[in-house]
């Protein structure tokens, strides 16, 4: 199902949670709403679900205005940040809930409910926990049960609020990939809220970056990472080194002070100057733990650069603290906007 968000505004007292937000979502897309806390991403999700009402603007499902449609009739699957499993019901009853509360003439028989619940439990690979209570499950299991429960009503759209926010790092990684595969199989329009850029980049088809109640950029993961539309997006999606440069000759903009940025992994470290762009700097810190070696280096002008090199390069260069090195950008992006 396609969703159109049209100039939606929501305020809490003095605070503007959403400021004329517009967004188009196509059928079958997997979208990440990415932003820091207070950016309005959860509010937008809740308004789409009908859990909150917007002061102005419209939400259209398949071109139809939803203003008069109550939450219970919207047929959205919502997975809550803390799962909101019914703690007095077994896993089975949790998943069956949406079927049991249907009006009598639409309600499946007990046998059908049973079949459907077990089908869903198999789908989330937790068939063996049917008779447990939510308190007896791990965080990752609760997450998957919450998803199964939301899917039981065959929703037209799936909304997930910080789906991995409360999980351990390990489980989080697994569930991310699982959600990706899961979406590839079911192809249901899915929106999830996250503050973790890595998560958004890894899982989503399309990322909506939000800040202070506004959408900063909508685009594919490559797009928002490599062509950020604003300084906020640039900074929010990973570390960045900002250079103050004066362009000497190019394209008629000569003499005008410009700024440019380079991501930490886009800097080459060498013992000798490689080009006119190379900057001399002294290493102040090395952290070799992790897949990349993280290095801080300080130029003579006092600018601090964050650099990431591969373990191999690090071993080859035999870098040590206080070494003088040259940093050469592999790719420079000039800012089209004022930083």
């Amino acid at each position: 199902m396609s969703i159109k968000v049209d100039k939606v505004t929501k305020t809490f007292g003095q605070f503007k949670a959403l400021d004329e937000v517009s967004l188009d979502i196509n059928t079958g897309e997997l979208i990440a709403l990415l932003g820091p806390s207070g950016s309005g991403k959860t509010t937008l999700l809740r308004i789409i679900a009908g859990l909150e009402t917007a002061e102005a603007g419209e939400i259209l499902f398949h071109g139809e205005d939803t203003k008069e449609t109550k939450v219970k009739d919207r047929n959205v699957g919502f997975v809550f940040q803390h799962y909101a499993l019914f703690r007095h019901m077994t896993v089975f009853e949790n998943i069956a809930f949406g079927l049991r509360v249907k009006p009598k003439h639409l309600r499946p028989t007990d046998a059908q409910i049973k079949e459907r619940v077990h089908e869903l439990l198999r789908l989330v690979q937790l068939d063996w926990v049917a008779n447990r209570y939510p308190a007896q499950l791990s965080g990752g299991q609760r997450q998957r049960i919450a998803l199964a429960r939301a899917l039981a009503i065959e929703p037209r759209v799936l909304l997930l609020d910080e789906p991995f926010g409360s999980l351990d790092a390990q489980v989080r990684k697994e569930l991310r990939q699982w959600l990706r595969r899961f979406h590839d199989d079911l192809h249901i329009t899915t929106l999830f809220v996250t503050h973790d850029q890595e998560e958004a980049l890894e899982v989503a088809d399309k990322i909506v970056v939000m800040n202070k109640g506004k959408i900063e950029q909508v685009g594919s993961p490559q797009d928002v990472y490599h062509n950020p539309a604003s300084v906020f997006v640039l900074n929010f999606l990973g570390n960045v080194n900002i250079f103050h440069a004066r362009i000497e000759e190019e394209q008629g903009a000569a003499g005008k002070p410009r700024r440019m940025y380079v991501r930490p992994h886009q800097l080459t470290v060498s013992r000798f100057s490689l080009s006119a762009d190379s900057v001399k700097a002294a290493i102040t810190f090395i952290n070799p733990a992790g897949s990349m070696v993280k290095i801080d280096a300080k130029s003579r002008q006092g600018e601090i650069f964050q650099v990431e090199v591969s373990q191999e390069e690090h071993a080859q260069l035999k870098l040590a603290k206080n070494d003088e090195v040259f940093l050469t950008p592999k790719k420079i992006t000039y800012c089209e906007y004022d930083i």
Binding site: A49, G50, L51, K70, V71, K72, D73, R74, N75, V76, G77, F78, F80, H82, A84, L85, F86, R87, F97, G98, V101, K102, R149, A150, A152, I153
Partner: peptide, 13 residues
């Protein structure tokens, strides 16, 4: 309100 909201999204009156 989480559990109540969950119930509503699942279609409960």
């Amino acid at each position: 309100n989480d559990e109540e909201e969950a119930a509503m999204t699942l279609g409960a009156s």
